[in-house]
Design a protein around this nucleic acid. Structure first.
Length: 359
DNA sequence: AACTATTCCAACCGCAACAAA
DNA sequence: ATTTGTTGCGGTTGGAATAGT
C-alpha cells in the first residue's frame, strides 16, 4: 500500500503494518513506554518513521481503544459536537472514550455525512440543504463565526455551576428520532451565522451549549483545551507518558515512561474532570482526578500514580489481552466486526481497567 | 465466475505549535 | 532571537473488502 516512493536515505517501510511490526512496537512500548517517537523505530527495530509508529500506536494498538461500531449515542454526540466544533476531530474524539480522531473522522466522512445529506442537512453547516435549484446553499454559516463562538465557549472555564446558557433552545434537531420523518431539521443558525440555537440533542430536549458542554454531559470530561490536549491525553484511556511528554527533559523523556517509574508511564488525562466515571481503573482504585494542567500534580496524581504502580502493562499486553490478528493485523479482535464488537466488551477501557487492576 | 463500481478505513502527508538547544 | 527537533492535527489517498452488474 505504498503511497509514494519518497526517496529517503534509509528506506523506510510503508503501508500496512504486519503483526510482527505491531508486536515489536507493542514490545517496545511495554518496555519503555511511549514518547520520543523519533527514537522508537531504531530501538524497536522497526523500519518505520517515528511518526508512523506514533500513529500506529494511537490509532490502532493502544489498548484502550474501543473499536467496533459506533453506538447511537456516540453518533449523536459526534454530530452535535461537530456542529459546535467543526472538523476538530481530536476534540470531538476526546469526548468519546476509546475513539480516535481518525476513527471519528472516518466515521463522519463515510457515514454521518452521507446520512445528514440524505436527511437534507448540509453536513458542513448543519443547516438544511437548499432545495435543488435554489441559489447555492443557504448562505454558508460563517464557520469562523461559529467557531469563534465555540472556541470562546471552550476556552472559558467549563463547569461553572451557573454558566449562563449561551444559546436558547429551538429547533436544531439532530436526534435521529426527530430527524426521521418529514422535514427533518428545521431551523438552525441565526442569520448572522452564529449558532443561535441548538436544541434537542436528545429528542427535542431543550439544550444549550452550557448544558451540553457540561462536564457530566460530556462523559465527565472537561472540554479539552484547544492548544495541546491530544486525543491521547484527553481520552479516557491510558496515556503513557502523557504529561511526562510535556514536562520531562529530553533525557528523561526518552523512555522515562516505564510503567515502573512512579506511575509516570500512565498519566491521567489532561482533561479529566473530577468525575472519572469513564476511567474505570480510577474508579476501582478510588482515585481522584489529576490536576487539570496535565502535570498530574497534586495528591490526586500521586494517588493515581501510586495505583498505577500496581499495573503491569506488559502483563496486560502479552497475557491474554494481546489481540488476535486478522489479515495483516487489521482486525486485532477477531475474525469479524461482530467478533470485534463482542470482544470490545471485554477489551474496552472498562475491561482494560479491570484487567490492569487485577494484575 | 468475472468484472466494475463503491465503500470503508488505515496510513500518509504537510503544516502548525511547541520545546529545547 | 533563531534554529532544530518533536509532536499533534486535519486533510487526503491507496487499496482491501464488499456490492452490484
Amino acid at each position: 500500500m505504498s503511497k509514494r516512493p519518497g526517496g529517503m536515505k534509509k528506506r523506510l517501510k510503508r503501508g500496512l503494518w504486519s503483526p510482527e511490526e505491531d508486536e515489536k512496537l507493542m514490545n517496545h512500548i511495554a518496555k519503555y513506554g511511549n514518547g520520543c517517537w523519533s527514537s522508537v523505530p531504531k530501538i524497536a527495530g522497526l523500519e518505520r518513521c517515528g511518526k508512523s509508529c506514533r500513529l500506529r500506536w494511537i490509532n490502532y494498538l493502544r489498548p484502550d481503544l474501543k473499536r467496533g461500531a459506533f453506538s447511537q449515542e456516540e453518533e449523536d454526540l459526534i454530530i452535535h459536537l461537530h456542529s459546535i466544533l467543526g472538523n476538530k476531530w481530536s476534540q470531538i474524539a476526546a469526548q468519546l472514550p476509546g475513539r480516535t480522531d481518525n476513527e471519528v473522522k472516518n466515521f463522519w466522512n463515510s457515514f454521518i455525512k452521507k446520512k445528514l445529506r440524505q436527511r437534507g442537512i448540509d453536513p458542513a453547516t448543519h443547516k438544511p440543504l437548499a432545495p435543488a435549484g435554489a441559489p447555492a446553499a443557504a448562505t454558508p454559516v460563517s464557520r469562523s463565526a461559529v467557531f469563534s463562538e465555540a472556541e470562546l465557549i471552550l476556552s472559558s472555564p467549563v463547569g461553572g455551576p451557573h454558566m449562563p446558557p449561551l444559546v436558547s433552545a429551538e429547533s436544531y434537531v439532530y436526534s435521529r428520532g426527530s430527524m426521521d420523518g418529514a422535514g427533518g431539521v428545521v431551523g438552525g443558525c441565526s442569520d448572522d451565522g452564529s449558532l443561535s440555537s441548538l436544541s434537542g440533542y436528545n429528542n427535542n430536549q431543550t439544550a444549550d451549549f452550557a448544558g451540553y458542554l457540561d462536564a457530566d454531559a460530556l462523559h465527565g470530561g472537561v472540554i479539552p483545551s484547544v492548544s495541546s490536549s491530544s486525543t491521547l491525553n484527553s481520552m479516557a484511556g491510558v496515556s503513557p507518558g502523557g504529561a511526562a511528554n510535556t514536562n520531562a527533559t529530553t533525557d528523561e523523556l526518552c523512555c522515562n515512561n516505564n510503567p515502573s517509574n512512579s506511575g509516570s508511564g500512565f498519566e491521567s488525562s489532561t482533561t479529566q474532570s473530577s468525575s472519572n466515571h469513564h476511567l474505570p481503573w480510577l474508579e476501582l482504585g478510588s482515585i481522584s482526578s489529576c490536576a487539570e494542567d496535565g502535570n498530574a500534580a497534586g495528591a490526586g496524581a500521586d494517588h493515581y500514580g501510586a495505583a498505577l504502580d500496581e499495573l503491569k502493562w506488559s502483563d496486560y499486553v502479552f497475557d491474554g489481552g494481546y489481540p488476535q490478528y486478522h489479515q495483516q493485523g487489521q482486525c486485532i479482535y477477531g475474525d469479524s466486526k461482530a467478533a470485534a464488537d463482542a470482544a470490545a466488551g471485554q477489551f474496552d477501557a472498562h475491561g482494560l481497567g479491570i484487567n490492569w487492576c487485577l494484575n
